[in-house]
Design a binder for these strands. Structure first.
Lengths: 229, 229
DNA sequence: ATAATAGTGTCTGTAAGACAGTATGGT
DNA sequence: ACCATACTGTCTTACAGACACTATTAT
């Protein structure tokens, strides 16, 4: 086996698929590119991995830099790596994409790097207006999120620390793009052991009976899973 | 945003978690390292990504080089990337790990690179005898394989092109490490639409009634999934 | 005949989907 | 009073797990 220093050098970046739920629809955070290539196109936020940081750290740092969010609530996980030889015309770049699920955040651009940043509904992102291979990365991220809601407690990452069953259901409906029966959903999530912890608090939203307020429980999976059919 | 050529250079490798089922147990393909660091330790097969090839191509090439297998049967997918700053003492290396599920192969070492290669039962691999962070990568690969058998037709990737229900069940039992009820398993997999295609062929294994021989069907998921409890 | 494996039928408990009905607030 | 939302209970159907039973081969 040969020594690493004899082998081709790559630039390594992290790209972020940051998803949130706003106004009943799944949104992704995009930035407008200020330079060539792809000047003026929308792109996923991201940046280069520094010499001394792990991939996960780099993703968290870029998230904070570009959105002003110190990923306390929410969820960050590695999505996958993209390294087609021609994906960046300047040189060989491997991007390690990460998926972030965040509660509804204050308008972006609080950050620094990007010329402009915006939340865009995922079903209104035209694939050909995204830079590089970001349309593929976005599609993979959305699919991962949709799949994970089935068997993991991750939907709560889209909510504030305290939330109602209706808010949780709204997340599922936005991410899956279909209506769920409120009564069966309630029965399912409240009976799943360790999924929700009742805070005792009640909350009135407009009219109607006040809803119980929950926190995330210790469960790491939902078995049997919810079905998105 | 800055130009990639101004940024730190990484070496990028692919590492392979190659799994197969032999003698009723899940095995992983390991190679003995011939050089420092970790000279003499077991490691996952792998190597450096070349200047002009995609990550997936690099993984397939390394698989062929180190095992002599031209990944026709079987399955290859990306597992995840590992890039802790100190994972290789020589320089900054990011490894894109891939998972390979292969039918029982002829003894390795048919390949070239590795000083020695061997199939090792996964539950007999001591974590601290693997080079670099390969113990973690192996654990992630095995967990991925176990999880995917639940809801995907991937178990067939461990079988020859034509196989019986009993052979398929043996795969599940080896990967999950628990016995399954042959009758319920048979009912489940034969009634899953598109999972198996009856070839009409029958096969007698020792004594007992001959078993129907199947090929993989077009199904991409098993819904509802099997449960490994 | 006996053993062994392949494959089918039946029963039971659990849970999902559909939806009636009750509880508790705002207007 | 009325409506909207939260929550509970009931019915039906589907399916997993358990296991009796039949089918077809080797010894």
């Amino acid at each position: 086996m040969d020594a690493p220093e004899d082998w081709p050098r790559f630039a390594v970046t992290v790209d972020l698929v940051v998803l949130t739920v706003r106004d009943g629809a799944l949104h992704v955070l995009l930035v407008r590119r200020g330079e060539d290539p792809w000047r003026g196109a929308w792109a996923l936020p991201g940046g280069f991995v520094r010499p001394v940081e792990d991939l996960h750290e780099a993703a968290a740092r870029e998230l904070a830099e570009e959105t002003g969010v110190h990923q306390a609530a929410g969820h960050l996980e590695q999505l996958g790596s993209y390294g087609a030889p021609d994906r960046d015309p300047r040189m060989r770049v491997v991007s390690v994409a990460h998926l972030v699920l965040a509660p509804d955040l204050p308008e972006p651009t609080a950050g620094t790097d990007a010329a402009a940043a915006a939340w865009v509904p995922v079903d209104r992102v035209a694939g050909d207006e995204l830079a590089f291979d970001h349309a593929r990365i976005l599609a993979d991220g959305v699919e991962r999120a949709r799949a994970k809601l089935e068997y993991s407690p991750l939907a709560a990452a889209f909510c504030a620390e305290r939330f109602t069953v209706a808010e949780l259901r709204a997340v599922y409906e936005a991410v899956w793009g279909r209506a769920l029966d409120p009564r069966n959903f309630h029965r399912k999530v409240t009976s799943a052991p360790g999924l929700l912890v009742d805070t005792g608090e009640r909350r009135t939203e407009g009219r109607g009976r006040p809803a119980a307020v929950y926190r995330r429980g210790p469960a790491t999976t939902i078995a049997p899973p919810l079905s998105r059919d």
